[in-house]
């Protein structure tokens, strides 16, 4: 497949009679492409990303992926009573890869502490690590830079740039421009992709 991700007339509504959060969205992302998704709060960015990652299913239309997606939400509502190492193992991340990603993303010192006691930034790094694990061909990251300090942002940007070089497609929702240059910016509003800028 020459596309990492494709949306065909995708509609998403929460509830049969509810107005669609996304309506008739067509989208294509190529391998190695970095696509930035922006839009106001409630515009449908996260819904678009959840559909892209396969977390959520479209109400109508079709989503095609070239392979498994690595998905990182912007936060967890409640941290599980586990350590970062236990959570990563539970999610199928090999111990060696978990340690390597923890080193690169800067949470190696917090691998064995309870997530509930860790900072929101550390939890965010763990979510990013599980998305990156296994080298998926599509990375779907919801506000990946949120809550990260400068060093962590730089470390993540380096890892993402490497993944891009290896052919992974990146779909990132961002409120402001992140440290990774995007090939395209999609602006979501009123349930549609309002603008696509290079």
């Amino acid at each position: 497949m020459t596309r990492a991700l494709r949306f065909h007339g995708v509609v998403k509504r929460y509830g049969r009679r509810a107005a669609p959060v996304l309506a008739d969205v067509d989208l294509e992302v190529r391998p190695g492409e970095v696509v930035r998704v922006t839009g106001a709060n409630g515009s449908g960015k996260t819904t678009l990303l959840r559909l892209a990652a396969g977390v959520s299913r479209p109400s109508a239309g079709r989503v095609e992926r070239g392979g498994r997606a690595g998905w990182a939400p912007d936060r967890l509502d409640a941290a599980p009573p586990l350590s970062a190492r236990e959570l990563l193992r539970a999610l199928g991340v090999a111990p060696g890869e978990a340690a390597a990603l923890a080193e690169r993303l800067g949470f190696a010192a917090w691998l064995d502490g309870r997530l509930a006691h860790d900072s929101s930034g550390t939890l965010h790094k763990v979510l990013l690590a599980q998305a990156l694990a296994g080298d998926p061909p599509l990375l779907v990251l919801d506000e990946p830079w949120a809550g990260l300090d400068e060093d962590a942002r730089a470390a993540l940007a380096t890892v993402l740039a490497e993944r891009r070089e290896r052919g992974a497609a990146l779909l990132l929702s961002e409120h402001g421009a992140g440290p990774l240059a995007a090939d395209r910016t999609l602006t979501v509003g009123a349930g549609r992709i309002e603008a696509a800028a290079p």
């Binding site: 990652a53 396969g54 977390v55 498994r68 997606a69 998905w71 939400p73 967890l76 509502d77 409640a78 941290a79 599980p80 959570l87 539970a90 999610l91 199928g92 991340v93 979510l127 599980q130 694990a133 296994g134």
Partner: peptide
């Protein structure tokens, strides 16, 4: 006992 988002993460990965 587990946040639904953790189930989602596990479902996407596994």
């Amino acid at each position: 006992a587990t946040d639904p988002q953790v189930r989602e993460l596990a479902a996407v990965r596994r």
